[in-house]
Design a protein around this nucleic acid. Structure first.
Length: 339
DNA sequence: TTTTGCCCAG
């Protein structure tokens, strides 16, 4: 199952059933069937997952709450939240199986995936109405509903409620979701305040935190902030993934901060990541190909921009664009290639 | 032994 080998998992279950004819101890139990269903769900094959549920019933092995939770997750991933809800309202109810906090968290996330934040709130309330206590995951998922619908203030309200709830602890995922809620709209000052509070509470920012900040910087188009974040990542020897670096490199290229952009892509290449040169070529040509072409600049101004020009040449060299060492005439074709 | 949330982007 962990290797995603669907056919082998199904064949194993069948073999167990056959063997059980002479060795009853091999009879698949509810965990066996749930494991098979998990494999099919992970492969996105809801039809076969559902068929195994039927097979389970015919074999006289009752599905458990976990079995249903797995199937609900599968329908949510396929964006079929209606079918997921039906499993709860009809199948689980008929089988007399009570949902738990995982059931509801999964459904709430399904609402988020289908841009239904009202549905997410309704399910959160329904869960509490049934006497099921929200977990840290419940709060964070509800925050996600507001974060992804561009309502950071509401996400923050949920965060505050979470802090007040003695049954749960605010963890790094919750802080990160709050940072994400602000960054998605490019509200960098608010996001940075959250990060400061998070650090003051002894929670270290991680890849997700910096990923959100990098995205926020890109949304807000604030290259100065990209430099600050890059310096912090360098100073703290922070473990970051390529996506964060790419977001920062994008902002730097857009802002014509080529020296920094080169530093960042160097780090990406150190990490074994292929920087997307095609994208940077397009950005360079679209945004900066007219740089340094003014004929009216004074000598003083030309001197001042010498370092920037050197950086631009180095960047073009890295891109493989014609630079000062080679030909100087080049243009962008309709197909995006350069001649 | 099987199930849920935190960056990217579709």
């Amino acid at each position: 199952m962990n290797a995603g080998r669907v056919d082998n998992v199904v064949a194993m279950m069948r073999a167990m059933r056959r063997e059980a004819e002479t060795a009853p101890a091999s009879r698949p139990d509810h965990v066996t069937y749930t494991t098979v269903i998990s494999t099919l769900v992970a492969a996105g094959d809801m039809e076969r997952a559902r068929a195994v549920l039927e097979e389970m019933g015919r074999a006289g092995v009752p599905a458990s709450r976990v079995t249903y939770n797995v199937l609900i997750k599968g329908y949510c991933q396929q964006l079929q939240v209606g079918k997921a809800r039906e499993l709860l309202a009809v199948d689980m109810a008929e089988a007399g199986i009570e949902p738990d906090v995982v059931t509801y968290n999964t459904l709430i996330d399904g609402c988020v995936l289908t841009d239904d934040s009202a549905g997410a709130v309704a399910l959160f309330n329904e869960m509490r109405g049934r006497g099921i206590a929200p977990s840290a995951v419940s709060y964070t998922t509800l925050m996600k509903a507001f974060a992804s619908s561009g309502q950071p203030k509401l996400a923050h309200k949920v965060f505050d409620e979470m802090e007040k709830d003695p049954r749960v602890a605010v963890d790094r995922a919750a802080w990160n979701m709050l940072v994400e809620a602000y960054c998605r709209l490019g509200l960098l000052e608010a996001a940075k305040k959250v990060v400061e509070r998070m650090k003051a509470r002894g929670v270290q920012p991680d890849v997700a935190t910096y990923g959100s900040l990098a995205k926020g910087i890109a949304v807000a188009r604030r290259p100065g902030e990209a430099l600050l974040l890059w310096e912090e990542i360098k100073k703290e020897e922070m473990e970051v993934d390529g996506e964060v670096l790419e977001a920062l490199a994008d902002v730097c290229v857009r802002a014509a901060l080529f020296r920094k952009a080169l530093e960042i892509v160097a780090r990406m290449e150190e990490m074994g990541m292929e920087a997307n040169k095609g994208k940077y070529k397009r950005m360079y040509v679209e945004l900066h190909s007219r740089m340094f072409t003014s004929r009216h600049a004074s000598q003083a101004r030309q001197d001042r921009r010498r370092e920037r020009k050197r950086a631009a040449e180095a960047f073009k060299f890295w891109l493989g664009l014609p630079n000062s060492y080679y030909a100087t005439d080049w243009r962008l074709q309709d197909d995006g290639n350069l001649t």
